[in-house]
């Protein structure tokens, strides 16, 4: 197998020629290894994300996608290798400091707090930079939340909880978002809404690293894909190369 990181880098260059903006690399992950207690989950992960892109990590359950996001966020106890965010190596940085640099994370389980109402959940993450979405902009994206502000956080429907989980990190001014399976367990109409939202965020210049099992959804929003298997990146290609890679994808994902 050829080095997937090199493939990916070459492909980034070709993909970045589409919109005419100067692009810099936001995130560079090199040789990342991570452990949950005794079990070795990531065995040298290499990939990068360029400003303004939506990049999706694909792969089967247990391939290490979520662990990759958590390692970037600094919430996996033992990790080695290099994670560079905007030129700064954050592999040894505590997660609260990483968040303060402008990295925002929306976990798979959504992490809505039961002892907080919707407003408190929404206002919980502190502002880390200027230029986060205002409440009005958030309510424009997620009109449902406005009517439920005083409800207990966990009384919302699954879709609403997902909206809330994403909405609260948009307020903070972070421009790099990591979304872990935002469509999991949601109805098609809600998935569509989330797709539209991601498209709008991309338009507004957010950089998004997405983990998805739902390949069809990912193919509608992502600029590039990486495929993970057994704690490594095994493949990387641009959305335009999707057709050509379908057979391989079917093998990797078993879809």
């Amino acid at each position: 197998m050829s080095n997937p990181a090199n493939n990916a880098a070459a492909m980034t260059r070709s993909a970045s020629s589409a919109p005419a903006v100067s692009r810099k690399t936001v995130l560079t992950v090199e040789n990342l290894e991570a452990w949950y207690g005794e079990s070795h989950i990531l065995h040298g992960v290499n990939f990068n994300v360029t400003e303004g892109e939506v990049v999706t990590l694909l792969g089967r359950n247990g391939a290490g996608k979520t662990t990759t996001l958590k390692s970037v966020m600094g919430i996996i106890g033992k990790r080695t290798g290099s994670v560079e965010f905007e030129g700064q190596n954050i592999i040894r940085t505590a997660s609260d400091k990483i968040a303060r640099l402008g990295v925002a994370f929306c976990p798979e389980e959504r992490g809505i707090f039961a002892s907080l109402d919707v407003r408190e959940n929404l206002m919980l993450p502190p502002q880390v930079r200027e230029g986060g979405l205002t409440l009005d902009q958030i309510f424009e994206l997620f009109p449902n939340l406005k009517e439920r502000l005083n409800s207990q956080g966990t009384k919302l429907s699954g879709g609403e909880q997902q909206m809330l989980a994403i909405a609260r990190i948009l307020r903070t001014g972070a421009r790099f978002l990591m979304l872990d399976e935002p469509t999991e367990g949601l109805a098609p109409v809600i998935i569509q809404q989330i797709g539209q939202m991601i498209a709008r965020l991309k338009q507004q210049g957010f950089t998004i690293l997405l983990v998805e099992q739902n390949f069809r959804f990912a193919s509608t929003v992502a600029d590039r894909f990486y495929v993970m298997e057994h704690g490594r990146i095994v493949e990387g290609f641009a959305n335009s190369e999707l057709e050509a890679n379908m057979d391989k994808l079917h093998t990797y994902l078993g879809v």
């Binding site: 966020m73 919430i75 997660s95 609260d96 968040a99 992490g111 039961a114 002892s115 206002m123 880390v128």
Partner: peptide, 17 residues
């Protein structure tokens, strides 16, 4: 609110900064 949230899920609250 930080305190109540951290009682439920300290890791996530920390990851918010």
């Amino acid at each position: 609110a930080y305190l109540r949230a951290a009682t439920e899920n300290p890791t996530l609250v920390r990851a918010f900064g």
